[in-house]
Write a protein that binds this DNA or RNA. Structure first.
Length: 444
DNA sequence: TCTGGGGTCCTAGGACCC
DNA sequence: TCTGGGGTCCTAGGACCC
């Protein structure tokens, strides 16, 4: 059974809101009358699945698989196989510690390209099955099926979810779990219940009871900081939070967050399922194997980051007006410096010029070695978009020649590989830049 | 237990303009 | 010399997500 190209009788819920932010304004409440049919399709341990598909004999052969950074360096676990989790391994944990907990485990690097490929496969399959698809991340997709009841012959949301699950597995070899309900928040939490490889749908009207039954830490938007803030006040469950007088909550976490929190815990979430718009920023960063002090070395690393970000910008056909440089020191403090240029740029030369002076500025502000260096570009505009007319004549941030040079370099790298050219002063890929897909995990 | 890399969104303060 | 309010843009930092 497949989805017609343009389902005529689908009545889409129309939303006028711009960003899909959970503003919770008085106008658009997700009240009891909310009868949307929303699914969250969540790939099971996505990186582990993809690593196994990409390397069936290596990663695919061991039950205890950790996907993530190197074991000897400062890497962390991005995803751990279900067999490894009973040992206490969690994503975000340092790989070294994970290996202490589960010594039998194999570590492999994240297969980035293959992850992108499989993610696009899943998205395309879903787009053929539902009228509105929002890619929330590489491995999570919201579907809005509101109005499809007749089209699907009265099929229940849970039946639809199971059908979609089977279909995705057939078409992409990726196993997913599916959560469903009338709101994104509820669908998301339901998917946790559905894992691994199952389906869970919360019936309309049961939202508040369902959310109240969840742990606070599982509610999207409640992170470690807010959690600790609430715990400090003795609030450990949704019921605890909802029992507290509103004015106290407002005093503790601020009026806006207090309101947001109460709405969420009552299962209210009016945010619409919206296909993702344009990218807002592009960045690259690097944590060093050992903290760095030498400014020349830092400069070379910065240049590498510039090349990566510049190429990313150009491949997307966008230009950036704001350049940001970020450093993290040994004490884990992060500092950023940003500059907005008078016109948007895309060439490595223009990006590098801005980045270099920002790095100097940052190095003047800190003492001691640098743990991480990052570089980002934001304030993006499409190439074709009308450029702002400068009010006064000024020096250009970027010449047509600089743009042309960068594009030629992209072309050469695309044809002959990343290592084809490294302008003087650039640190070539070192031993820490391991290549995915070879052998049994990485040992730099 | 020593914390990756890619993002998004929010807040707060200052500059500047009207 | 004292005194506005609002709007927009920019910067820095931080919370959060996967």
């Amino acid at each position: 059974m497949s989805w017609p190209e343009h389902p005529p009788e689908v009545e889409r819920t129309e939303y006028t809101t711009g960003g899909g932010k959970p503003k919770g304004g008085a106008g658009s409440r997700g009240g009891a009358e909310d009868d949307r049919r929303i699914l969250l399709v969540d790939c099971d341990m996505f990186f582990v699945q993809v690593a196994r598909l990409a390397d069936p004999d290596g990663a695919g052969a061991t039950p205890y698989l950790l996907v993530g950074g190197s074991a000897t360096g400062r890497g962390v676990v991005t995803s751990a196989s279900y067999d490894a989790r009973p040992y206490g391994v969690r994503s975000g944990m340092s790989t070294a510690r994970a290996l202490r907990l589960c010594p039998a485990a194999t570590v492999v690097p994240v297969p980035r390209e293959e992850c992108g490929r499989r993610s696009r496969m899943v998205r395309r399959s879903l787009e053929a099955l539902a009228p509105v698809v929002e890619a929330a991340s590489v491995d999570e997709f919201y579907l809005d099926l509101t109005g499809t009841e007749r089209l699907f012959g009265g099929e229940s949301l849970a039946e639809t979810a199971r059908r979609i699950r089977r279909r995705i597995l057939e078409e992409t070899e990726i196993s997913v779990s599916v959560g469903g309900g009338t709101r994104k928040l509820v669908a998301k939490l339901a998917a946790e219940v559905a894992k691994p490889g199952g389906v869970h749908v919360v019936p309309a009207g049961g939202e508040e009871r369902f959310v109240r039954g969840c742990e606070l830490s599982r509610i999207p938007g409640i992170g470690p900081t807010l959690l600790a803030e609430l715990e400090k006040r003795g609030l450990r469950s949704p019921d605890d939070v909802l029992a507290v007088e509103e004015r106290w909550l407002e005093e503790w976490v601020g009026p806006r967050r207090a309101h947001w929190l109460r709405e969420r815990l009552r299962g209210v979430d009016p945010s619409p399922v919206l296909p993702r718009g344009e990218r807002k920023s592009v960045s690259a960063e690097r944590t060093f194997h050992e903290d760095l002090t030498d400014r020349g070395t830092l400069g070379s690393h910065l240049q590498r980051l510039v090349l990566s970000v510049g190429r990313d910008l150009r491949s997307r056909g966008v230009r950036a007006r704001t350049v940001t440089v970020k450093i993290r020191t040994r004490d884990f403090r992060t500092r950023t410096a940003a500059r907005t240029l008078s016109e948007a740029v895309e060439s490595d030369g223009a990006l590098a010029a801005a980045a270099r002076s920002l790095l100097q500025e940052l190095l003047g502000r800190i003492r001691g070695p640098v743990r991480l260096l990052g570089m980002g570009a934001s304030n993006l505009t499409r190439e074709g978009d009308a450029a702002q007319i400068p009010l006064l004549p000024r020096e250009a941030d970027e010449s047509p020649r600089e743009r042309a040079v960068s594009r030629i370099m992209d072309d050469l790298r695309n044809r002959f590989g990343d290592e084809a050219l490294f302008p003087a002063g650039i640190i070539p890929p070192g031993p820490t830049t391991s290549r995915p897909g070879k052998g049994d995990g990485e040992k730099p």
